[in-house]
């Protein structure tokens, strides 16, 4: 089911000035409920502008953004309710933490939505659970936590609003491998539990291969191509020309194919590759 649809969205920064720069040109794409859509693109390809379209932080110069078929920019007064339904986690969201305790910080969003206290308390715990934060963390000051924990508190603050669409700009940047898996695994659990549409912008091709159902490639303010991870990563040369890359497993698979080992193009994670090769090589314990 299509949750958010962008129709021919155009956006230019500084229009009419010598510095005018088209950030989005005729971008059309749809984001489905219950699926994780990955967005990849070189620095300056328009990813961050695109992310701000989803909840109306920016509105298109032309074209439409439809949430459940309704143009979110048609009625500016309705935008605050759109922002409760579409949660946006910016880069380095931990810099936005401000309250005395983790619990109060996570509760900020639901409190502004006017929810009753019991509901807020329940949502805070549920959101903390998704991001792997224990009960003992809730009474601490967010400023006493490690960087990875702060990041999770910030994401939990958005999850507590139970958005139908969750948009995250580089949610795992700067985290160690385990921290990445925990955050991204939490987003999968949120999607599975709520059926929300999840959009993740990332420069990490391994994460995209492991977690995205579908990947959209942006190039110079336009959508270059899109598809399932395996379809996208099969177009290695185009990705590399765009300053992108393929996951390590795809790089190794290419080298195996060069050497005559039949590895299907569907394989784009190390786990899948190991499982496939163990059968191909008839390995036995």
């Amino acid at each position: 089911m299509v949750k958010i649809q962008l129709e021919n969205v155009c956006y230019t920064y500084g229009p009419g000035t010598p510095f005018a720069k088209a950030a989005l040109k005729n971008v059309s794409l749809s984001v489905e409920a219950g699926r994780i859509t990955g967005i990849i693109g070189h620095t300056g390809s328009g990813k961050s502008t695109l992310v701000r379209m989803f909840n109306g932080l920016l509105s298109p110069d032309s074209g439409r953004v439809l949430l459940d078929g309704v143009d979110i920019n048609a009625d500016k007064k309705a935008l605050s309710s759109v922002r409760c339904r579409v949660g946006l986690v910016m880069q380095y969201p931990e810099y936005q933490l401000f309250d005395e305790t983790v619990e109060k910080d996570i509760a900020f969003g639901p409190r502004n939505m006017g929810l009753p206290p019991e509901e807020i308390a329940a949502r805070v715990r549920e959101a903390a659970g998704f991001t792997g934060l224990g009960e003992e963390i809730l009474s601490k000051s967010p400023f006493d936590l490690s960087g990875g924990q702060k990041r999770r508190v910030a994401i939990a603050g958005i999850l507590a609003m139970k958005p139908e669409v969750l948009v995250l700009d580089e949610p795992a940047a700067g985290l160690d491998p385990k921290g990445r898996r925990e955050i991204l695994g939490g987003l999968v659990r949120y999607r599975d539990t709520t059926g929300a549409a999840v959009v993740i912008v990332s420069h990490n091709m391994e994460d995209m291969a492991s977690y995205a159902d579908r990947i959209v490639v942006l190039r110079k303010a336009e959508t270059a191509f899109e598809g399932a991870p395996a379809e996208v990563f099969a177009r290695r040369r185009e990705l590399e020309e765009n300053g992108l890359d393929v996951p390590d497993a795809v790089r190794i698979a290419d080298k195996l194919r060069e050497r005559g080992v039949p590895v299907p193009e569907e394989i784009c994670t190390v786990e899948e590759e190991a499982a496939y090769l163990s059968r191909l090589l008839s390995l036995q314990k």
Binding site: D248, A249, R251, I252, V270, A274, L277, S278, L283
Partner: peptide
């Protein structure tokens, strides 16, 4: 990744 892949294969025999 190269070592992770071969390590996984070694665990499978």
């Amino acid at each position: 990744a190269e070592t992770e892949l071969l390590y996984s294969l070694n665990r499978l025999g």
